[in-house]
Write a protein that binds this DNA or RNA. Sequence first.
RNA 1: GCAGGAAUGGCGGAAUGGCAGACGCGACAGACUCAAAAUCUGUUAUCCGUGAGGGUGUGUGGGUUCAAGUCCCAUUUCCUGCACCA
Length: 805
Amino acid sequence: MAQVFNHQEVEAKWRDIWNEHPVNVNDGKKPKYYCLDMFPYPSGSGLHVGHWRGYVISDVWSRYKMMNGSHYVIHPMGWDAFGLPAENYAIKMGIHPSVSTKENVDNIREQIKQIGAVYDWDMEVNTTDPAFYKWTQWIFVKMFKKGLAYQKEMPINWCPSCKTGLANEEVVNGKCERCGAEVTKKNLNQWMLKITAYADRLLEDLDKLDWPEKVKKMQTEWIGRSYGAEVNFPIDGMDETITVYTTRPDTLYGATFMVLAPEHPLALKLATDETRAAVEAYIAESANKSNVDRVQNKEKTGVFTGSYAINPLSGEKTPVWLSDYVLSDYGTGAIMCVPAHDDRDFAFAKKFGLPIVQVIAKDGKEIPDMQEAYTEAEGIVINSGEWNGLESSSLKMEAPSMIEKKGFGKKTTNYKLRDWVFSRQRYWGEPIPIVHCEKCGPVPVPEDQLPLLLPDVESYQPTGTGESPLAAMTDWVNTTCPCCGAPAKRETNTMPQWAGSSWYFLRYVDNHNDKELVNREIADKYLPVDMYIGGVEHAVLHLLYSRFYTKFLYDIGVVDFDEPFKKLFNQGMINGKNGIKMSKSKGNVVSPDDLVRDYGCDSLRMYELFVGPPEQDAEWDDRGIDGVYRFISRFWTMVLDNAEKDVAVTPELLKLRNQMVHDITTRLDGFSLNTVISGFMEYNNKMVELTRAGGVDKETLKTAVKLLAPFAPHVSEELWQRLGGTDSVFHEKWPEADKEAMKDDEKEVAVQINGKVKDRLMLPVDIDRDEAVARAKELLGDRLQGTVVKEIYVPGRIVNIVVKG
RNA sequence: GCAGGAAUGGCGGAAUGGCAGACGCGACAGACUCAAAAUCUGUUAUCCGUGAGGGUGUGUGGGUUCAAGUCCCAUUUCCUGCACCA
């Protein structure tokens, strides 16, 4: 009599054995496979079932890779532990963020261990560890020395609730990505990283990545490269020129007015005595508008400067206006307006009664009374002097060089991507390793003096003034210049949370090295990441920053590759009832702890996958876990019942075994993990049936256990052992399907008349077409009426007789 | 506004153009039990019919095809991303 399945016993036993004898060992000969999770932020609320899902997916994949191809799998875990939540919690509770962070890390590490994953805890990293952030600072110093880190005083995105500056990427719909507060502008002297210097490479190298198209597209749009021309418009009666950027130089003759951003340096200068008051008022009004007002209120506003610019091609005088629909930090902050062929210019022209001149014919014609802009670059050029008659789409391509030749402009490329605002006015982050000296300017802390430790402060309370809490630490701030020795002050801003996460994946493989970020030989051997698994919410933030860092480290010779993550998989989110995101405040967080206790880790692992396609969001429902628990129990009983019987293999069993291997492997390779689980259930149902009929042979049982191992590792190890295995099941080779043995001799074929199923028929798979049709007709008999016009036979599937009358 | 994606039983979901609803949850019935739980067996898209059987069905309307959840056109709703980038 087989033993009753007891998940607690089995799982406890194998946890101990694996601790003693890890299954994923590096013998130095096996090929490596680096399977990485996006490392978690150790928050105080711990893990919920949604976090589990990603970790289960990556563990299943890691274990599969161990068996299939016998890889040594690099599967590490670490902590992205600097940042605001820890700091805010510390302020609230009056404890140091390093204390609460350590507690949270210890707590979540235990929770992660419940997953039963093959994480190599010797590789663990923590971004707040000085031995780690030494290298985060070192990268900054290297960037500074290459001119990629620079200071700039400019109006930046400011979150009034987090009391810190934000990068463009951290502003979502005009709101703070983290807390949702409306972002305002603040003039601050900031450290910037010149990510724009890498714009072309970041864009073009997307081609070599095996990433979801969606993410590549988001990055492409975020970088936002466009081709066009800069054109110079002299100001009538003034020794000034307005340079505009346009992607549509083919419409240059249609430019009937100009618009400058209110922040444009010439804005006030162009005002005349009559317009000065209105211009000043408009500039002041725009300065006070929040991002959200500017973006969401699309009703055009503007003011005429009183000056005119001269169209360099037509010689026409065009009025110059100010309007906040022109962005000061894109292109030149000034545009030529072609209302006939641009929606926004059209709206502006209509509102302020400015002329509209059509320069591209639509369907070969001029539109008599334009009601909306014609924005396609398709058509013959009209009203454009010597350009008349040209095809506008080809003129669009040629115009930039024509303009360049004529000497009033040049060909240009523009990007939506902006440099990265890198300083934060908060405490819990890496100090920026710079010393400000009156004589030498900003001087990096010498590399051999890194890490520059984050000092303890009395208050981490954000000041809100644009100064970091570190500024109050005069002992720490006052230092000497590493260059000339004169008294100097330390930079008091810290780095954003993204700094450590931009390169942590390089450190796992050599995490104790205090001489180098990563040893080059080790890096060459184990990097880059082969598979990266995490949520899609980092599509542009973390994933763009990491690519930038990696390219920089490649350029300075630290690593030999310029893309960090070869393949990316975004798992869907798990939500609470009615698709509501799980959160502590909503009270709908489902903790894995109780489920692990009641059903076992293996059941929860399988259920996490069974809830739906891994890339799709899913609504959590506890009840479904019963289904996988029942499956595991039944599988357990089935295997042990048969194990005692010593059943001889039959062609039928051989077929089942090979079909199972083929089905499971195909689905697993296609990352269709939910149907892998249903596949196991189906094959188990068949084997349970066969157990009653005569039994299942040992080799088939062993094969099933091997296939199940990545999904339910504890149960599989136990069953493997009971089937006579002496070593871990994970040291077995992944089974291969014998294509011949899995073939059916006969298949059930549907017999249709005019596409409607009338009956079914067992037919040999190699039957002749005519014979199959004849057998079908014979079966149909009287039911077949009228004239047969067509006979279709799809082997193994269908016979369709098409009749008429 | 623009760009992507999605829409299938009571629920989660499955279907290389070839028998829609695999697998699971739930529900119902039965077995076991003093009883319940657990377990096991069976039924479970829907309408008509006692039955055999027949009709209808993958958001909506059209089309291609012997055959459409799947391809094409139009349309609605929902989700995601971007949002004055000239």
